[in-house]
Design a protein around this nucleic acid. Structure first.
Lengths: 300, 300
DNA sequence: TATATCTATAGTTTAAAGCTATAGTAAGGA
DNA sequence: TCCTTACTATAGCTTTAAACTATAGATATA
């Protein structure tokens, strides 16, 4: 048994069809049929139930599929690592990020580029908790900036900074007159919030829960910029990370703080403990840690 | 790149010698040389430093070796799982155990054998904490009875019972006259204890530490029976698990309890969360859990 | 210098993974 | 019911690459 067979098997399962899978794998259909049959003979177990129209996994097939996917992922990850060892100095740094990332990252990158001028930096927005896991485990990113404190056997996350959430309202909103704004006040308003999967959404909904308030969600948006525009048009209020909101203010809006202890999140840097990281990636991680250690010390 | 190449590479690294590795792998030396060279070309990295007399790993080689070993282990584990799926009902249950296991296990096995008369049971003594990990991860055992409360992402351990340690002394020993025996008393005596790596050793030494006493270790033994014999000859005292000591008593020895709260250990059943376990193994694990739940309830 | 011990190269054999062509099987439409 | 469609399996041939043997090259030890 070898990895080729695992690859053949997994794509066959995914395509639920020998002919299509064969096309995906750039081999002929009989070759694939043969390979799968040989595999089944080798383990003396039926792995696929060839039903009329479509394939079903047997119990053994299900186990074999799960294991194969895991093995292939690890194998592919190893090849990424080797490639990164080869391209040391001229490679890529892939970063997963949350929304407020872009406000502090440029400050760090300027200095970093002096040491590693040829490094290519790839930033992708990582939204929900599963995606954070997934993008790390699949080696899509070298590290990720997240509000999830993940700590398991494989992933290590270290806190970078704390960030408050602020309320963005139209300047003519009645709340702007109030001295102190509570969650109960916001509950009466029409709330603009990120759609499911976005990290800020979870933070905000948790705060509502902790404050025993029920949010009146009217708009669900994908980009925080959209939320700002809607507020500007007087269509509702929104809650945004502090770092973000500074750049979002326009003459027609007002930024107010909310009277709550729950509207604060910690932002972490998370990475795989065991993965090989090129010197460039290590340096960048170090720079980020330094930046915030210095930043925090400066604040106090 | 395929698993064959990983296997060739790892054994070459382990043997530090192409010719020997080739023999291990039942292939000719030129075939192996060729395979490794092809591998190095494929990843465009030198993996081995061919020094005069012996091989050295490069940095990339080291990473590749570590990953390969892990991948091969997982791959072999999968094959064990498939084999167990095939042999369901007539397979083997492999158990790792600590010393006191044998006193309660026969009670459970009698009933188990009614349901699974053809199952082969393999018991191996698992000594230190690393061995517990290793034997589980390498699929050497289906589960293990241990005094280590392991809980990580892969291994789950559930408590079975608590067990006191007792003191075994010669019947003429002066301690036999004392009403209450403390660790300070034992510290003055010549102690017989298991060698490094045995689970009881760690438990006992920890208790000495907690009681601020320094053990006077004179004999280190591998089998608890040896400890009993030595005590019978009047060569020292020993500390043994309660369940064990009942069968160890002879006319020339005396069993005494020790005045300490630290001489108790919890015994756990540990297994891999993610591994496929045959119905027989599941039933046996269930039987063991039931036995001790019932046993505990019966005690109180 | 000779010998032992190892790895690399050259050329050949062989196993198996791939191909094309085609047969077999079940579902769906006329 | 029969034909078409959409699949998978079988048969026989081709090609790739992994293995082999024989031998050359390199380096340390006697």
């Amino acid at each position: 048994m070898d990895l080729r067979q695992l690859r053949y098997f997994t794509t066959t399962v995914q395509e639920k069809n020998f002919s299509k899978a064969a096309k995906m794998l750039h081999i002929s259909q009989p070759s694939l049929s043969n390979a799968i049959m040989k595999l089944e003979n080798e383990v003396s177990l039926q792995l696929l139930e060839r039903n009329t129209r479509g394939l079903e996994l047997t119990e053994a097939g299900g186990l074999f599929y799960a294991r194969s996917v895991d093995l292939l992922r690890r194998f592919d990850n190893m090849q990424v690592e080797l490639k990164e060892m080869k391209d040391v100095g001229s490679g890529t740094v892939s970063i997963g990020s949350i929304e407020s990332f872009k406000f502090w990252f440029p400050k760090i990158i300027r200095n970093f580029k002096i040491n590693y001028p040829n490094i290519h930096i790839k930033i992708s927005e990582i939204l929900g908790e599963e995606k954070v896991f997934d993008s790390l485990n699949r080696y899509n990113v070298h590290f990720t900036i997240t509000n999830q404190p993940i700590n398991n056997d494989e992933i290590l996350s270290t806190p970078l900074y704390k960030e408050k959430f602020m309320l963005l309202i139209h300047k003519d909103d009645e709340l702007n007159e109030k001295e102190s704004i509570t969650f109960q006040d916001i509950a009466k308003k029409e709330l603009i919030i990120s759609t499911t999967g976005f990290q800020t959404r979870d933070d905000i909904l948790r705060a509502f829960k902790d404050e025993n308030a029920i949010p009146n969600i009217l708009y669900e948006i994908e980009r925080l910029e959209t939320a700002c525009s809607l507020v500007e048009e007087g269509l509702g209020v929104t809650i945004l990370p502090e770092s973000y909101i500074k750049s979002a203010a326009t003459p027609n809006t007002a930024i107010r703080s909310i009277d709550s202890n729950f509207l604060e999140r910690t932002v972490y840097l998370a990475f795989l403990k065991d993965r090989y990281l090129s010197p460039a990636v290590c340096k960048l991680v170090e720079d980020i840690h330094c930046f915030f250690r210095w930043d925090v010390r400066n604040d106090t």
